[in-house]
Design a binder for these strands. Structure first.
Length: 419
RNA sequence: GUGAGUGUAGCCCAGUGGUCUAAGGCGCCAGGUUGUGGCCCUGGAUAUCGAGGGUUCAAAUCCCUCCACUCACCCCA
């Protein structure tokens, strides 16, 4: 028997209410904050990702779904959403539009990893990018928007973590100090951290091993090494967030795993959770557009994992509105009336009354049972006797009451009762 | 890539060597009501017991290999 590839899932009808709900809230949020939707291809040149995310990151080193197409081109299924949006910004000359350009997307994302709770090889992200403005007020807006989005979904008890990791001017000095600091504990570090020491110094702060945690606590802090501009940016951002009443926590160990981040980085986490606690995160990437061949352009963005949001909606028992289903079921008792039934069903739908219709020859009992299981409010029953008089039985499934109504009046009556 | 746990019908699961041609519950189908759902009663369909190999007179049950799933590490959403 075939089954969905490892790390992928079928999103069955029973789950779709969550997806519809989240996408709707996402679109509403974006409308309120002035973001427009963009859809970029699901695959891009491998280069785009290796250049932007960073060659030594795990994503690029071992998690990309890459292949060579029939034209010999190196192609990669998108492992994240920011780089393609930046590529589109450059390609379509969006620097000529009023800045910042605000774009959002919901899209599948592919990473070759061992699946576990809240982690898949194909997952879905809702994200947005604000490109072309370096004002910390924009950072605040982006963070506020993420917070608003989660709040509007009904999620509570969230934690907002914030940090600044500096820019190309001030970060090298910080990295040097950090490396020096960790170097003195070198033989006490875990195997992974010994590798990080040379390869990805910032990530040393992120190690969750108990033996490494104490080193992170007393490690040099990036915010103590910020240049004047970065320091000011961070100070102003903090002020805006306070004004907005967003309860942020500065976390000196928050560094994020993609190389393109500069200055502001942030994550939003639920208070309780499994290993994959982050439901959304983002930050500034002031060097990325230039790195990808555009003009030097400041920007920042945010992305959230829809599967993880659903996980938390369930954990917090948030009630999701059901997807609207037809409220009318048309049953028939004889194949001789099928013509009438088909016509009626079609005309109801054209008048915006959703209707189920049985097409096979089932017993009336079976049809009513089905109608009951679906949960429709009304069943229209048509048989030989009704057809003779141009009438139908209209049964109210909640009360069990039923009337004989002429087919001509059915629509008006239904429209009235379904109000 | 590493480690641990789990694999019995669509779903939840009983069963730890012979009474298993595999029990129960949910769901599904049908009948009880010859044109009427939900409750109840009765009946029915659906399982090469994850796959392959081995031990044994005998394997869902023990052993080996593989596969899948789950959780965790790594990393991230």
């Amino acid at each position: 028997m075939y089954q969905a590839p490892r790390g992928t899932v079928d999103i069955l009808p029973a789950e779709q209410s969550y997806w519809f709900y989240i996408r709707q809230k996402a679109a509403q949020t974006c409308q309120l904050y002035g973001y427009e939707r963009i859809d970029t291809p699901i695959f891009e040149s491998t280069n785009l990702f290796s250049r932007s995310i960073g060659k030594t990151t795990d994503i690029v080193e071992k998690e990309m779904y890459s292949f060579i197409d029939k034209g010999g081109k190196q192609i990669t299924l998108r492992p994240e959403g920011t780089a393609p949006v930046c590529r589109a910004y450059i390609q379509h000359g969006m620097q000529n539009k009023p800045q910042p350009v605000k774009l959002y997307y919901t899209t599948p994302v592919f990473r070759y990893e061992r699946p576990q709770a809240g982690r898949y090889r194909q997952h879905h992200q809702f994200g947005y990018e604000a490109i072309g403005d370096n004002d910390p007020a924009l950072d605040a807006e982006v963070i506020d928007m993420a917070w608003f989005f989660f709040e509007s979904l009904g999620l509570s008890k969230l934690t907002l973590l914030l940090n600044s990791i500096g820019c190309s001017k001030c970060r090298p000095e910080y990295l040097t100090s950090l490396r020096q600091y960790y170097h003195s504990y070198r033989n006490k570090l875990c195997v992974d951290c010994k590798v990080r020491l040379d390869k990805n110094t910032l990530r040393l702060l992120d190690c969750k091993k108990e033996t490494c945690l104490p080193f992170a606590v007393t490690a040099p802090r990036s915010i103590d090494y910020l240049c004047h501009e970065c320091k000011e940016h961070f100070r102003l951002l903090g002020g805006y967030l306070q004004q907005l009443g967003l309860p942020f926590l500065v976390n000196h160990c928050l560094v994020r795993g993609l190389d393109y981040y500069t200055r502001t980085v942030f994550e939003i986490q639920p208070q309780v959770g499994g290993a994959q606690s982050t439901i959304g995160g983002g930050g500034r990437y002031d060097g990325l557009i230039e790195e990808l061949g555009g003009k030097s352009t400041p920007a920042l963005g945010f992305a959230s994992g829809i599967e993880r949001i659903i996980l938390n909606l369930k954990k917090q028992s948030v009630v999701i509105p059901p997807i609207h289903q037809p409220q009318v079921f048309i049953a028939h008792t004889s194949d001789r009336v099928k013509n009438e039934v088909t016509k009626l069903a079609s005309s109801l739908r054209r008048a915006s009354v959703g209707a189920f219709q049985t097409t096979s020859s089932k017993s009336l009992k079976a049809q009513l049972r089905q109608a009951n299981n679906i949960g429709v409010r009304y069943v229209i029953i048509i048989g030989d006797e009704e057809i003779k008089t141009g009438a139908a039985i209209l049964r109210n499934m909640t009360t069990g009451e039923q009337d004989i109504v002429s087919i001509a009046e059915l629509l008006d009556k239904l429209l009235c009762q379904l109000q």
